[in-house]
Design a protein around this nucleic acid. Structure first.
Lengths: 174, 174
DNA sequence: ACCTGAACACCGTTCAAGT
DNA sequence: ACCTGAACACCGTTCAAGT
């Protein structure tokens, strides 16, 4: 309940304006009571991040070429990020979004394996793609993308172009 | 002098621990005096970011294939980012690093043009590459890269692999 | 086991008063 | 023009005292 309330405040006003005291007020509780359930503010933010990323535990890529599967996976990650952009913006800046061996990670490696990438390169290429797409989403969530590309285009124009380019890059080594 | 002193504190202890009061102490000055030279803390951080990014105004790519030039440019950006990683980490999170029509941007577009990319795609592809590399550097500066790839490898292994993949992606459309 | 009030050591910022 | 002390409205966190 604490985490959900914190997430509500973050979604509404940003991480910047979440304080233990405001959170307590939102919960109708004494500010100090919170410290009996969460160690400190950093742990609170960590908990909220896990709440959100665990919410996307079930990731499925239906059939299609490996290119379509990669694209689908990237958009899945994007949907997750944009649903709570204020939180994700913070989580990226403290390194807390991409979980190695998480469901996203496993699916990614499976798709790369299916694409015919030689086994010793699967994990490394997976990691590279994960940070590239993660970083890409960070630029979308912090406004850089909109500033550089967004001029009157569809919201996902930049993201889509970038994913195309990454897929071509992977294609060059299968 | 204010900006340089702020940068010193940020390099040493991170943006987190820069306060107007600490900065004043470092300068041997009354905390309130600073407000006569800078509007507020956000403006201060913005000024420090400009101080650093303007320091890299002269970007040259010597001859070689366009692939080598792109790689060289990417590493130039990386050097700039890692030289003040605490600051850049913050600047990325508020969207303040990549300057459209900055020297980096112009060089990037020139290289893409030289690679033979059709003119209408030069700017768009340039923007996509800029956010991809920017986001990539953010993951390096915040530790994600090290966590996912760094295990005993050279420091720039992940970055190098990612740049290879991006170059292959560009190659697919020239 | 959980709650709470008071307190500590900080913040950014405003503003009237000084030189 | 620049500086400064006091003050305001906040922070996160600790801790002894309560139930």
């Amino acid at each position: 309940m604490i985490l959900r309330s914190a997430l509500r405040i973050i979604d509404a006003d940003g991480v910047q304006s979440l304080s233990m005291r405001k959170l307590a007020a939102d919960l109708g509780v004494n500010p100090m009571s919170i410290y009996h359930h969460v160690a400190n503010k950093a742990a609170l933010l960590d908990g909220v991040t896990r709440l959100v990323t665990d919410g996307a535990r079930h990731i499925e890529v239906s059939g299609g070429t490996w290119q379509e599967q990669l694209r689908q996976l990237a958009y899945e990650f994007r949907t997750l990020s944009l649903a709570h952009s204020n939180l994700i913006r913070h989580a990226f800046s403290v390194d807390d979004v991409i979980q190695r061996d998480g469901p996203m990670w496993r699916t990614l490696c499976a798709v790369l394996r299916g694409a015919g990438l030689p086994e010793p390169e699967v994990e490394r290429t997976g990691a590279v793609l994960a940070v590239l797409v993660g970083g890409l989403l960070h630029t979308e969530v912090n406004g850089t993308m909109r500033r550089l590309i967004g001029e009157g285009e569809a919201d996902d124009t930049g993201f889509s172009l970038a994913v195309d380019l990454l897929i071509d890059g992977v294609a060059a080594r299968v």
